[in-house]
Amino acid sequence: MSASPGVWLAAIFTLAIYSFLYGDNPVYKFSEHLFVGLGAAHMAVMGWESMFNRAWTPLYTKGEWWWSGAIIGGIMLLTRWFRPIQWISRIPLGFMMGVAAGLSARSAIDSQFWRQIQSTVTMKLNTTNNIVYVVIVVCTLAYFLFAFNEKSGLGQGIKGVGLVGQYMMMIAFGASLGSTIMARLSLVIGRLDFLFKTWLGVLK
């Protein structure tokens, strides 16, 4: 059995979290609240360091003036704490949303949309596997058509093709679940390994 106080502490917290599987209890509540506090604190410290090292230091020591935009924006966000001038925080919020939208659109157009189509159109329909692949892509995409009247002939057709796509998605979901179960079980094994080897020392 380990003599290290750190290992003991880690083992106690590990057991405290696992105790939730039996039901909510004071030990879990304590660990949960501690973890939430530590987590928020750790992120606040990281945030402070990021602000200080990435924005303030280059601005102050190297004269990289453009960082002032981020710092002014950040101070404007903090007006949230003062009700009469709370509205000022909306200005950087609007900016953040815009930049997030630009970034989302950018990556969606390039890697998620264009490149996926590019990889598909190069496939030659000369093997059964390739034909299956292309048919599945088409059927799945048809499931995501929304703007049609379900009662019309075309609508019925799209629904039919989309239904095939839905079954194909179920195959994909089943495969993802099957492969993920195995990966997640290894996480439990990792914790048990810590408890039985590092802490208790009953396994070599």
Partner: peptide, 19 residues
């Protein structure tokens, strides 16, 4: 939906032509 129809067209035409 226009984007999806365009994609379907590109995929069907592209794969047939590539073949």
């Amino acid at each position: 939906d226009f984007g999806k129809w365009l994609t379907l067209l590109l995929i069907v035409a592209g794969t047939i032509l590539a073949t």
